[in-house]
C-alpha cells in the first residue's frame, strides 16, 4: 500500500521535462494522471528514483483539428476525450473505447497519453490507436519525432519511446460517420471494472451495403495490442454473412496468454466472436 520513496519534480514545459528525463536516465518515471503508475508504486512493482510530474505542463491538454487529422494532447483525460465534440464527430471509436476504461473516477484522472505510453496489452486504448492508424508524437532532446501506432507498441509494457522522450500528442486521422465510417469497441471482461479479457476495436467504412475497408484492433491477444490483419483482408467487400466468415480468422497470428480459468483457445474464440459482433455493430449490420 505504501509507495517507495522517490524524488519528485514538476517541470513547467516540455523542454524542461525532456531535459530532466535526459539527466535522470533510466531511473525516472513520467507521471501524468498517475492511474497506471500509482498502483505500480503502491504494490512496490516500480522503484523510480525520480518521478517527473508532467501533469501541469501547459498546452498538452485538449483537442484540435489539423486538416484531415485530430490532434489530441497527451494529457487529455479519458473523461475529456469521451466528452469532446471533435472526438465524437471524427474519432468516435476512441470516445467509445475510452468510456469503457476502468471507472469514472479513474477516467477523470487517467490520460490518453498515459494509457498509450503504459502500453498494457490489456488496456483498451492501445488497440484503438492501432485501429485508428494513429500517430504518436514524442519530443526528445533532438526535437520532435512521429511514431506510427503500428511501431509504437514494442512488447509488454514497452514502447518505442526512449527514456528521454515525452509523448506529447496523438494524431488521429478523421474517421467520421459522414465519410462512411462506422465504429464499435466490444469489450469482454469478467466483472464491470475488470480489465478486458479480450477487446475488439472495429472501424469500418461502408459502401453500398457492404464493407469497403475494415480495421480491427485486438486488446489482450498478445504481449502488445495487435491488428487482426487476416480478418481485415477478408472483410473487404463483405456482407453480413461474409463478416461472420471473415471473423473466423480474427485470431490468426495472435499469441494470447493463458491464465487460470482462461485458456489461449478461449481467448481466440472470444476474438472471433467479438470481432464478428464488433464489425457488425460498426457496420450497422447487427
Amino acid at each position: 500500500m505504501i509507495p517507495p520513496a522517490f524524488e519528485y519534480t514538476r517541470p513547467r514545459s516540455v523542454e524542461d521535462a525532456v531535459r530532466t528525463l535526459a539527466d535522470a536516465g533510466e531511473d525516472a518515471k513520467v507521471l501524468a494522471g498517475g492511474q497506471s503508475l500509482l498502483p505500480l508504486l503502491r504494490m512496490r512493482l516500480a522503484f523510480p528514483e525520480l518521478v517527473v510530474d508532467v501533469g501541469r505542463i501547459p498546452g498538452l491538454r485538449g483537442v484540435r483539428e489539423e486538416g484531415e487529422a485530430l490532434v489530441i494532447g497527451a494529457l487529455t483525460t479519458h473523461h475529456d476525450v469521451i466528452a469532446d465534440p471533435l472526438v465524437r464527430r471524427h474519432a468516435g471509436l476512441l470516445a467509445a473505447a475510452a468510456a469503457t476504461v476502468a471507472d469514472p473516477a479513474i477516467r477523470h484522472r487517467g490520460t490518453l497519453g498515459g494509457s498509450l505510453a503504459h502500453a498494457d496489452p490489456g488496456g483498451d486504448l492501445p488497440a484503438v490507436a492501432l485501429a485508428l492508424d494513429a500517430e504518436l508524437v514524442a519530443v526528445g532532446p533532438e526535437g520532435q519525432r512521429v511514431v506510427p501506432a503500428g511501431e509504437f507498441f514494442v512488447d509488454f509494457l514497452q514502447t518505442a519511446l526512449r527514456p528521454d522522450e515525452l509523448l506529447v500528442e496523438v494524431r488521429v486521422p478523421k474517421t467520421g460517420e459522414s465519410d462512411g465510417w462506422g465504429f464499435h469497441y466490444e469489450k469482454f471482461s469478467r466483472v464491470a471494472q475488470a480489465w478486458a479479457m479480450v477487446g475488439v476495436a472495429a472501424l469500418v467504412r461502408r459502401e453500398d451495403g457492404h464493407i469497403a475497408e475494415a480495421r480491427i484492433g485486438l486488446t489482450n491477444m498478445g504481449s502488445t495490442p495487435l491488428r487482426a490483419s487476416a480478418a481485415e483482408e477478408a472483410l473487404a467487400g463483405a456482407d453480413p454473412d461474409g463478416v461472420a466468415r471473415a471473423a473466423q480468422s480474427a485470431a490468426e497470428g495472435t499469441r494470447p496468454a493463458a491464465e487460470p480459468g482462461v485458456s489461449a483457445e478461449y481467448r481466440a474464440q472470444l476474438a472471433r466472436v467479438l470481432t464478428r459482433r464488433s464489425v457488425l455493430a460498426a457496420a450497422g449490420m447487427g
Partner: peptide, 14 residues
C-alpha cells in the same frame, strides 16, 4: 488472485 484486481468481487453492474 492476490489483489482486488485479480479476485473478482462483483460490482453494481455485475
Amino acid at each position: 488472485s492476490g489483489t482486488m484486481a485479480d479476485y473478482l468481487v462483483p460490482g453494481a453492474p455485475d
